[in-house]
């Protein structure tokens, strides 16, 4: 069943259009930055953006910071929100279930397909951003112009060697993927509850927007640490020197908890649900 879902996802034109659109925004930013060379002042704007003007190899991270808060979650919410409700609305759910496809393996396959979509998207964004970053913004060696430490600059201002930078970038990408797994689990659960795929997607976005809003509200202090978006941007900490693990570790645990709880809820609801569409 996993293979079926993956093939549906890969063969769907919508998948690639979505990835293209997501990829377009950081690419646009790269072009604008290279044309104007006006970066946000350090400490403002999306993470890393001020750093990339001097070091294009950091642009994949800047791109990640651009797509992670909004574009990617929307795409994930739409894709995962459609997983069950979309098949139900289309009528194909009942025909898949009588093949038979077990209800749990159906949910697992959907989750895997959504995560595969996320991985493809993030890899595409990272690769495009790296290429554009190096081409348009140059790398640290060139702009530094002097005796050359290959690698990049950490957010803390110290220099990172290339293997270090690559390793940390990989970690950051993995972290972003995990954050999206949390979103996907929420959307998948809502997709087993809602009648319409759009309802499930909008519900998920509402959760994320509420979370972002509450995060800025002092009065919401008590719930702040369990908000799904609480540690999303903690991957920036992976580029401090030394790495600031605290938020990253908490973020990982929190996202794992979201995946377990909401995937469990999705299963609990779907396993005994009457399929009447």
């Amino acid at each position: 069943m996993i293979r079926v879902e993956l093939s549906k996802m890969v063969r769907s034109r919508r998948t690639w259009v979505t990835i293209l659109l997501i990829d377009a925004l950081p690419s646009l930013v790269a072009v604008l930055l290279s044309l104007t060379a006006i970066g946000p002042r350090p400490g403002t704007g999306p993470a890393f953006l001020s750093a990339v003007l001097t070091d294009g190899t950091l642009f994949p991270l800047a791109a990640l910071a651009i797509v992670l808060p909004l574009l990617l979650p929307i795409a994930v919410a739409l894709t995962a929100g459609e997983a069950v409700a979309g098949e139900a609305q289309q009528g194909t759910l009942r025909y898949l279930l009588v093949r038979p496809v077990g209800r749990l393996s159906f949910l697992v396959a959907k989750m895997v397909a959504v995560m595969a979509f996320v991985v493809i998207t993030i890899v595409v964004v990272a690769v495009t951003a790296y290429v554009l970053g190096v081409l348009l913004l140059g790398n640290g060696e060139v702009t530094a112009g002097s005796a050359v430490v290959p690698g990049g600059t950490s957010v803390s201002g110290t220099t990172l060697s290339t293997p270090e930078l690559v390793g940390r970038t990989a970690l950051a990408l993995a972290y972003a993927i995990l954050c999206m797994a949390g979103v996907a689990a929420i959307a998948l659960f809502l997709s087993t509850v809602a009648d319409s795929p759009l309802g499930a997607a909008l519900g998920t976005m509402a959760v994320l927007i509420a979370s972002t809003l509450l995060f800025t509200l002092d009065a919401a202090d008590v719930v702040r640490d369990v908000l799904p978006t609480r540690y999303w941007l903690a991957f920036v900490d992976l580029f401090r020197d030394p790495v600031l693990w605290r938020d990253v570790v908490r973020g990982v645990l929190l996202q794992l908890a979201y995946v377990v709880v909401f995937f469990g809820a999705a299963w609990a609801n779907f396993a005994t649900k009457d399929v009447t569409d």
Binding site: M1, R3, V4, Q90, G91, T92, R94, Y95, L96, V98
Partner: peptide, 28 residues
């Protein structure tokens, strides 16, 4: 068991043949 419940359903953007082969792949 072969079944048709409340009208047929298929993935509209795929061909008939491709639909059948997806359904078949989902089975045993």
């Amino acid at each position: 068991v072969g079944a048709m419940v409340e009208g047929p359903a298929a993935y509209g953007q795929l061909s008939g043949r491709r639909n059948l082969s997806l359904y078949d792949a989902a089975g045993r």
